[in-house]
Amino acid sequence: MTLQAEFSAALLDAERLVPSGLIAWNGSNPDKRFAVYRNNVVTSLIDALADTFPVTLELVGDEFFRAMARVFVAQTLPRSPILAEYGDALPVFVENFPPAASVPYLADVARLEMLYLTAYHAADARPLDNAAFQSALADSAALPNARMRLHPSVGLLKSPYAVFSLWAAHQGAFGIGTVDPYRAEDVLVVRPRSDVEVMPLRSGAFYFLEQLADGASFGDSVMAVGEVQPDFDLVATLSDLIGVGAVIAINF
Protein backbone atom coordinates (compact mmCIF):
# COMPACT_ATOMS: atom_id res chain seq x y z
CA MET A 1 0.00 0.00 0.00
CA THR A 2 1.34 3.43 -0.86
CA LEU A 3 1.59 5.97 1.90
CA GLN A 4 -1.23 7.95 0.31
CA ALA A 5 -3.58 4.94 0.17
CA GLU A 6 -2.64 4.04 3.72
CA PHE A 7 -3.28 7.61 4.83
CA SER A 8 -6.74 7.85 3.26
CA ALA A 9 -7.79 4.37 4.46
CA ALA A 10 -6.78 5.27 8.00
CA LEU A 11 -8.77 8.50 7.77
CA LEU A 12 -12.07 6.66 7.47
CA ASP A 13 -11.40 3.75 9.77
CA ALA A 14 -10.63 4.58 13.38
CA GLU A 15 -9.53 0.97 13.97
CA ARG A 16 -6.58 1.37 11.65
CA LEU A 17 -3.19 2.44 12.83
CA VAL A 18 -1.91 5.83 11.88
CA PRO A 19 0.43 5.44 8.88
CA SER A 20 3.98 5.01 10.08
CA GLY A 21 6.48 7.74 9.34
CA LEU A 22 4.11 10.64 10.00
CA ILE A 23 5.58 13.48 11.96
CA ALA A 24 3.96 16.66 13.24
CA TRP A 25 5.52 19.99 12.30
CA ASN A 26 5.65 21.10 15.94
CA GLY A 27 6.85 17.82 17.32
CA SER A 28 3.56 16.89 18.97
CA ASN A 29 2.20 13.36 18.98
CA PRO A 30 1.29 12.38 15.36
CA ASP A 31 -1.37 9.95 16.63
CA LYS A 32 -3.25 12.78 18.31
CA ARG A 33 -2.85 15.15 15.36
CA PHE A 34 -4.07 12.47 12.98
CA ALA A 35 -7.09 11.76 15.18
CA VAL A 36 -8.06 15.45 15.05
CA TYR A 37 -7.75 15.47 11.28
CA ARG A 38 -9.73 12.22 10.96
CA ASN A 39 -12.49 13.65 13.09
CA ASN A 40 -12.62 16.85 11.01
CA VAL A 41 -12.90 14.91 7.75
CA VAL A 42 -15.64 12.60 8.94
CA THR A 43 -17.61 15.28 10.78
CA SER A 44 -17.52 17.72 7.87
CA LEU A 45 -18.90 15.04 5.54
CA ILE A 46 -21.63 14.11 8.04
CA ASP A 47 -22.49 17.83 8.34
CA ALA A 48 -22.69 18.11 4.56
CA LEU A 49 -25.15 15.19 4.48
CA ALA A 50 -27.21 16.72 7.28
CA ASP A 51 -27.43 19.95 5.24
CA THR A 52 -28.48 18.11 2.09
CA PHE A 53 -31.04 15.81 3.74
CA PRO A 54 -32.82 17.90 6.42
CA VAL A 55 -36.17 16.06 6.16
CA THR A 56 -34.53 12.63 6.15
CA LEU A 57 -32.72 13.73 9.29
CA GLU A 58 -35.91 14.95 10.96
CA LEU A 59 -37.73 11.71 10.18
CA VAL A 60 -35.23 9.58 12.09
CA GLY A 61 -33.75 12.15 14.47
CA ASP A 62 -30.32 13.68 14.68
CA GLU A 63 -28.66 10.82 16.56
CA PHE A 64 -29.81 8.07 14.22
CA PHE A 65 -29.07 10.14 11.11
CA ARG A 66 -25.53 10.95 12.21
CA ALA A 67 -24.80 7.36 13.16
CA MET A 68 -26.10 6.21 9.77
CA ALA A 69 -24.16 8.95 7.97
CA ARG A 70 -20.98 7.89 9.75
CA VAL A 71 -21.31 4.36 8.35
CA PHE A 72 -22.02 5.81 4.89
CA VAL A 73 -19.04 8.17 5.02
CA ALA A 74 -16.71 5.33 6.03
CA GLN A 75 -17.55 3.45 2.83
CA THR A 76 -18.17 6.37 0.46
CA LEU A 77 -15.46 8.92 -0.16
CA PRO A 78 -16.43 12.03 -2.14
CA ARG A 79 -15.68 11.54 -5.83
CA SER A 80 -15.66 15.26 -6.53
CA PRO A 81 -14.59 18.34 -4.57
CA ILE A 82 -18.16 19.68 -4.94
CA LEU A 83 -19.81 18.81 -1.65
CA ALA A 84 -23.28 19.39 -3.08
CA GLU A 85 -22.80 16.22 -5.14
CA TYR A 86 -21.75 14.20 -2.13
CA GLY A 87 -24.73 12.20 -1.00
CA ASP A 88 -26.13 11.14 -4.37
CA ALA A 89 -25.41 7.56 -3.24
CA LEU A 90 -27.08 8.00 0.14
CA PRO A 91 -30.62 6.98 -0.92
CA VAL A 92 -29.45 3.56 -2.15
CA PHE A 93 -27.40 3.17 1.01
CA VAL A 94 -30.43 4.01 3.18
CA GLU A 95 -32.53 1.47 1.28
CA ASN A 96 -30.06 -1.28 2.19
CA PHE A 97 -29.27 -0.11 5.71
CA PRO A 98 -30.96 -2.69 7.96
CA PRO A 99 -31.51 -0.39 10.98
CA ALA A 100 -33.58 1.94 8.74
CA ALA A 101 -35.83 -0.87 7.49
CA SER A 102 -38.62 0.14 9.86
CA VAL A 103 -38.88 3.46 7.99
CA PRO A 104 -39.35 2.09 4.46
CA TYR A 105 -40.10 5.51 2.92
CA LEU A 106 -36.84 7.02 4.18
CA ALA A 107 -34.85 6.27 1.01
CA ASP A 108 -37.45 7.93 -1.24
CA VAL A 109 -37.55 11.04 0.94
CA ALA A 110 -33.75 11.17 0.59
CA ARG A 111 -34.17 10.78 -3.19
CA LEU A 112 -36.53 13.76 -3.23
CA GLU A 113 -34.06 15.85 -1.25
CA MET A 114 -31.25 14.95 -3.64
CA LEU A 115 -33.47 15.95 -6.60
CA TYR A 116 -34.14 19.23 -4.83
CA LEU A 117 -30.44 19.97 -4.51
CA THR A 118 -29.76 18.87 -8.09
CA ALA A 119 -32.51 21.18 -9.38
CA TYR A 120 -31.08 23.99 -7.28
CA HIS A 121 -27.71 23.68 -8.99
CA ALA A 122 -29.07 22.97 -12.49
CA ALA A 123 -28.67 25.42 -15.36
CA ASP A 124 -30.99 28.42 -15.59
CA ALA A 125 -33.62 28.55 -18.32
CA ARG A 126 -36.60 30.78 -18.88
CA PRO A 127 -40.03 29.09 -18.71
CA LEU A 128 -42.18 29.52 -21.81
CA ASP A 129 -44.51 32.52 -21.48
CA ASN A 130 -48.19 32.83 -22.37
CA ALA A 131 -47.58 34.51 -25.72
CA ALA A 132 -45.35 31.65 -26.84
CA PHE A 133 -47.96 29.07 -25.79
CA GLN A 134 -50.64 31.01 -27.67
CA SER A 135 -48.56 31.09 -30.83
CA ALA A 136 -47.96 27.33 -30.53
CA LEU A 137 -51.72 26.96 -30.30
CA ALA A 138 -52.16 28.92 -33.53
CA ASP A 139 -50.23 26.16 -35.30
CA SER A 140 -52.55 23.47 -33.95
CA ALA A 141 -52.27 21.11 -36.92
CA ALA A 142 -48.56 20.68 -36.11
CA LEU A 143 -49.13 20.10 -32.38
CA PRO A 144 -49.15 16.26 -32.44
CA ASN A 145 -45.61 16.19 -33.83
CA ALA A 146 -44.35 19.08 -31.74
CA ARG A 147 -41.90 18.42 -28.94
CA MET A 148 -42.19 20.09 -25.57
CA ARG A 149 -38.84 20.82 -24.00
CA LEU A 150 -38.74 20.53 -20.26
CA HIS A 151 -36.75 22.81 -18.01
CA PRO A 152 -33.18 21.52 -17.50
CA SER A 153 -33.75 21.45 -13.74
CA VAL A 154 -36.73 19.06 -13.96
CA GLY A 155 -36.45 15.99 -11.74
CA LEU A 156 -39.07 13.25 -11.42
CA LEU A 157 -39.70 10.78 -8.65
CA LYS A 158 -42.18 7.91 -8.55
CA SER A 159 -42.74 6.43 -5.12
CA PRO A 160 -45.00 3.85 -3.47
CA TYR A 161 -44.94 6.21 -0.47
CA ALA A 162 -46.43 9.63 0.22
CA VAL A 163 -43.06 11.20 -0.41
CA PHE A 164 -44.40 14.64 -1.34
CA SER A 165 -46.73 14.85 1.67
CA LEU A 166 -43.98 13.75 4.05
CA TRP A 167 -41.65 16.36 2.62
CA ALA A 168 -44.32 19.10 2.61
CA ALA A 169 -45.31 18.34 6.21
CA HIS A 170 -41.72 19.04 7.19
CA GLN A 171 -41.85 22.40 5.41
CA GLY A 172 -44.72 23.27 7.75
CA ALA A 173 -47.43 22.88 5.08
CA PHE A 174 -49.54 20.68 7.39
CA GLY A 175 -49.16 18.41 10.39
CA ILE A 176 -47.17 15.23 9.93
CA GLY A 177 -49.93 13.38 11.81
CA THR A 178 -52.30 13.89 8.87
CA VAL A 179 -50.00 12.09 6.42
CA ASP A 180 -50.57 8.46 5.49
CA PRO A 181 -47.04 7.49 4.38
CA TYR A 182 -48.25 4.41 2.51
CA ARG A 183 -50.18 6.26 -0.19
CA ALA A 184 -48.24 6.32 -3.46
CA GLU A 185 -47.18 9.73 -4.76
CA ASP A 186 -45.24 11.00 -7.76
CA VAL A 187 -43.35 14.27 -7.56
CA LEU A 188 -41.99 16.91 -9.94
CA VAL A 189 -39.05 19.08 -8.87
CA VAL A 190 -38.12 22.13 -10.95
CA ARG A 191 -36.35 25.44 -10.50
CA PRO A 192 -38.06 27.83 -12.95
CA ARG A 193 -36.40 30.90 -11.42
CA SER A 194 -34.43 31.35 -8.20
CA ASP A 195 -36.44 28.95 -6.06
CA VAL A 196 -36.95 25.22 -6.34
CA GLU A 197 -40.60 24.14 -6.68
CA VAL A 198 -41.76 20.72 -5.50
CA MET A 199 -45.11 19.59 -6.85
CA PRO A 200 -47.17 16.40 -6.44
CA LEU A 201 -48.14 14.88 -9.78
CA ARG A 202 -51.59 13.75 -10.90
CA SER A 203 -52.32 10.26 -12.08
CA GLY A 204 -50.39 9.51 -15.30
CA ALA A 205 -48.46 12.80 -15.25
CA PHE A 206 -45.21 11.07 -14.27
CA TYR A 207 -45.41 8.79 -17.29
CA PHE A 208 -46.40 11.73 -19.53
CA LEU A 209 -43.36 13.72 -18.37
CA GLU A 210 -41.10 10.72 -18.84
CA GLN A 211 -42.26 10.49 -22.46
CA LEU A 212 -41.64 14.21 -23.02
CA ALA A 213 -38.23 13.99 -21.37
CA ASP A 214 -37.35 11.07 -23.66
CA GLY A 215 -38.07 13.30 -26.64
CA ALA A 216 -41.41 11.76 -27.65
CA SER A 217 -43.76 14.09 -29.52
CA PHE A 218 -46.71 15.73 -27.76
CA GLY A 219 -49.19 13.50 -29.61
CA ASP A 220 -47.31 10.28 -28.97
CA SER A 221 -46.84 11.14 -25.30
CA VAL A 222 -50.57 11.73 -24.78
CA MET A 223 -51.47 8.51 -26.59
CA ALA A 224 -48.91 6.49 -24.64
CA VAL A 225 -50.27 7.71 -21.31
CA GLY A 226 -53.85 7.06 -22.38
CA GLU A 227 -52.96 3.42 -22.92
CA VAL A 228 -51.56 2.85 -19.43
CA GLN A 229 -53.52 5.44 -17.44
CA PRO A 230 -57.08 5.93 -18.75
CA ASP A 231 -57.91 8.48 -16.04
CA PHE A 232 -55.06 10.77 -17.10
CA ASP A 233 -56.30 14.39 -17.02
CA LEU A 234 -54.42 16.12 -19.83
CA VAL A 235 -55.89 19.59 -19.30
CA ALA A 236 -55.17 19.70 -15.57
CA THR A 237 -51.69 18.26 -16.05
CA LEU A 238 -50.81 20.80 -18.76
CA SER A 239 -52.17 23.54 -16.56
CA ASP A 240 -49.92 22.35 -13.69
CA LEU A 241 -46.86 22.20 -15.91
CA ILE A 242 -47.47 25.61 -17.48
CA GLY A 243 -48.18 27.20 -14.12
CA VAL A 244 -45.05 25.89 -12.44
CA GLY A 245 -42.84 26.82 -15.40
CA ALA A 246 -41.68 23.31 -16.32
CA VAL A 247 -41.86 23.84 -20.10
CA ILE A 248 -39.25 26.03 -21.81
CA ALA A 249 -39.99 25.45 -25.50
CA ILE A 250 -42.37 23.89 -28.00
CA ASN A 251 -40.37 22.87 -31.04
CA PHE A 252 -42.17 22.26 -34.33
Binding site: R126, P127, L128, D129, N130, A132, F133, Q134, A136, L137, S140, L143, P144, P192, R193, F218, G219, V222, L234, V235, A236, T237, L238, S239, D240, I242, G243, V244, G245
Partner: peptide, 17 residues
Protein backbone atom coordinates in the same frame (compact mmCIF):
# COMPACT_ATOMS: atom_id res chain seq x y z
CA UNK B 1 -54.42 18.50 -28.20
CA UNK B 2 -55.18 22.05 -29.23
CA UNK B 3 -58.39 22.03 -27.19
CA UNK B 4 -56.58 20.64 -24.14
CA UNK B 5 -53.73 23.13 -24.42
CA UNK B 6 -56.20 25.96 -24.95
CA UNK B 7 -58.21 24.93 -21.90
CA UNK B 8 -55.07 24.58 -19.81
CA UNK B 9 -53.93 28.05 -20.84
CA UNK B 10 -57.27 29.56 -19.93
CA UNK B 11 -56.99 27.95 -16.47
CA UNK B 12 -53.46 29.03 -15.67
CA UNK B 13 -51.13 31.66 -16.80
CA UNK B 14 -47.53 30.85 -17.41
CA UNK B 15 -45.10 32.51 -15.05
CA UNK B 16 -44.42 35.97 -16.42
CA UNK B 17 -41.01 36.41 -17.97
Amino acid sequence: LAAALGAALSMTSAPVA
